[in-house]
Design a protein around this nucleic acid. Sequence first.
DNA 1: TTTATCCATTGAAATGTTTCAATGTTTACT
DNA 2: AGTAAACATTGAAACATTTCAATGGATAAA
Lengths: 94, 94
Amino acid sequence: MAQMDPKTAEKISKALSDPTRLKILSEIKKKNDWLYCVDLYDSINLAQPSICHHLKQLTETAIILPEKEGRNIKYAMNNEVIDDYIGFLQGLKK
Amino acid sequence: MAQMDPKTAEKISKALSDPTRLKILSEIKKKNDWLYCVDLYDSINLAQPSICHHLKQLTETAIILPEKEGRNIKYAMNNEVIDDYIGFLQGLKK
DNA sequence: TTTATCCATTGAAATGTTTCAATGTTTACT
DNA sequence: AGTAAACATTGAAACATTTCAATGGATAAA
């Protein structure tokens, strides 16, 4: 497992430090594999550019992976990044 | 292990989303048990109120535990909170 | 009790984040 | 080609965070 550097851990922490973004991740989990962008407009009460902004932060840190499908985009959790981040957190412990 | 709620996870993520605070945690790790506040003034190039502000965020989320010792305060990692947070992250995965 | 040390608080400037209306870009459908 | 649908970008307002000088409060030493 890759050893995550503090700068990356900081960015991932920041990406996870917002209620909307945690909600997006729980929606992906709920869908069990892929989440379509349009699904979020139902469950998240924010304007489209705001949701887009949050998705960008999650994809830029590779916490979620986007896949284009015609006009639509679907997202999946990237378990590897979560695991690397968990590894970093384990490393903080005594 | 306690199931951490999203609001708490959000706060812990925020506490971990700053380079100074990650540096403080790595200094605690380096000291291997307790870190004295004064140790940070050597290793972190910020004014005392700034360091105080960061320590407050880490203690308010219970990521670190303070202990008073006369005029001084020493800090230790709270592994339980880290473990609970890791549990939350595991729960995000598919 | 006076003085020094350690940490906390206040208040304000600088910076960063979140949000949305308006608009742009890309793809699909007719 | 023309229109519609899905997502991205821009720019600006509102809000939050970071930083520090100045000051305050508590404990220890002289």
